[in-house]
Structures are given as structure tokens and as C-alpha cells.
């Protein structure tokens, strides 16, 4: 490249700094094209293609360019990381509190599935002959909300037809495991407390845990 200075440089190419180039090569590339064209037109030697990358000596001006680009890259990287991290901490969360008081155990009729906390806390509270337990309303197949069918005495998911018994055990459809139970306990005022931060899974044998069931 350095030995054919008459050839017009492609726009944007950095002129080789060492060779004492004629005036046409050192002016700005935009104006260089029309000036150099008539001189180069008759001959048109093919520019040599540089096959091997050779490190060029960087001029002061080039250092400014390199600095500007690096600054830009670092700034983009930092701001990307910052906003990714920022994205993980939203300003508002709509998650209801994980613990709630569910009234006195005597409010629940034996053998009934109570749906009063389904909308607000995603919990069914079921009372059987011995006591109370809190079932999660999330289907274990793909996370839809099943419906309690009083006539059939089962939870039935409208998405893929999984069925659960009153105890939460899966028995039909594709759900691979039973509904999860939440920790239940009694507060000082005698009300029942449901703690959704602790879950008990039947297939791990966790339903035997005393906190998964409230004896009444």
C-alpha cells in the first residue's frame, strides 16, 4: 500500500503516516476522492491487498480515536450491567405478604375447602376431621390456577386437565406431583397463621412435618 500513493484511498482509511505522501493523500477523504479521480483514471492499477495484518504505528490523533472508542465501550458496558442489575429490583412489587392471618380455626367447617384466601393469597384452607392445612393454588404441571369442584370433590386445572384430590394428591391428568402445602401455625390471639415462605412437598415426605398440618 505504501508504495502506491497515487491510488485514491477508500473513504475512512487511515493514511499511512510514515511515507511522505503527496498532498492529495493527506487531505480529508471526502474531498480526496473527486480530486484524485482524474489523475488515477487512465492507469487504474489494482491496489495490493494486504493479506497479513501488520501492526501500524499509532499517531497522536489515532490515540484520541482509540481513547474515544474505548471510553464509549466502557460506558456502554457499565451502563448495561447497571441496568441489568437495576432491572432485578423493580420499584413496585405486587406480591402479597408471605404471611397472613387466616382467622380462627373454628371458622372453618370440617370437610370443606375454603376459597376465601384464593384470590388474595393463592391459598386454599381445607379442614378435615383432624385439623387444617393450607394448599397452594398453583398447579404443579404448568402453574395455572385449578378450580375446586364441590360436586366432584376435586381440584381440576382448566389448562391441561390435571386433577387433585381434596388432600392435594394428584390423581389424573399430567400433573407430576401433588399440590404444595404451606406452613400453618397458631398466633397468640388464637388465629391461624399461614406462612407461604415455607412449602411442604408430599413426594419428599414433607407433609409429615408437624408444621404442615394444624391439629384442632
Amino acid at each position: 500500500m505504501a508504495d502506491t500513493p497515487e491510488v485514491p484511498k477508500p473513504a475512512g482509511a487511515i493514511p499511512p503516516p510514515i511515507v511522505a505522501a503527496p498532498a492529495a493523500a493527506s487531505v480529508a477523504p471526502a474531498s480526496a476522492a473527486p480530486v484524485a479521480k482524474p489523475a488515477a483514471a487512465p492507469l487504474k492499477p489494482r491496489p495490493k491487498v494486504q493479506m497479513v495484518w501488520e501492526p501500524k504505528e499509532l499517531h497522536r490523533r489515532d490515540w484520541m480515536l482509540v481513547g474515544a472508542w474505548s471510553l464509549f465501550a466502557v460506558a456502554s458496558l457499565l451502563s448495561t450491567i447497571f441496568y441489568i442489575v437495576r432491572f432485578l429490583f423493580p420499584n413496585v412489587t405486587y406480591e402479597p405478604p408471605l404471611q397472613f392471618k387466616a382467622g380462627l380455626p373454628t371458622e372453618y367447617a370440617p370437610g370443606r375447602v375454603d376459597e376465601r384466601y384464593k384470590a388474595a393469597f393463592g391459598t386454599w384452607i381445607v379442614r378435615d376431621d383432624r385439623g387444617l392445612y393450607a394448599l397452594s393454588t398453583t398447579c404443579t404441571h404448568l402453574g395455572c390456577t385449578p378450580n375446586w369442584l364441590e360436586g366432584e370433590q376435586k381440584f381440576k386445572c382448566p389448562c391441561h386437565g390435571s386433577g387433585f384430590r381434596k388432600s392435594g394428591i394428584n390423581f389424573e391428568g399430567p400433573a407430576p406431583r401433588p399440590l404444595e402445602r404451606y406452613r400453618v401455625g397458631l398466633a397468640d390471639d388464637g388465629q391461624m397463621i399461614v406462612d407461604k415462605s415455607v412449602k411442604f412437598q408430599e413426594e419428599k415426605g414433607e407433609w409429615l412435618n408437624p408444621e404442615a398440618f394444624l391439629y384442632v
Binding site: A119, H141, P158, C159
Partner: peptide, 20 residues
């Protein structure tokens, strides 16, 4: 809290939903 019953995917995905 209220999943439509029955809940169905867009018609062109129903084969996938049936698979599920």
C-alpha cells in the same frame, strides 16, 4: 386467580398444548 375454563392456546399451538 381466575384461569378461563377451558384455557386454550392460540389455535395453531393447540397441537403443542395437546402434547402437554
Amino acid at each position: 386467580n381466575k384461569t378461563p375454563n377451558p384455557s386454550k392456546a392460540p389455535w395453531y399451538f393447540l397441537g403443542l398444548q395437546e402434547m402437554l
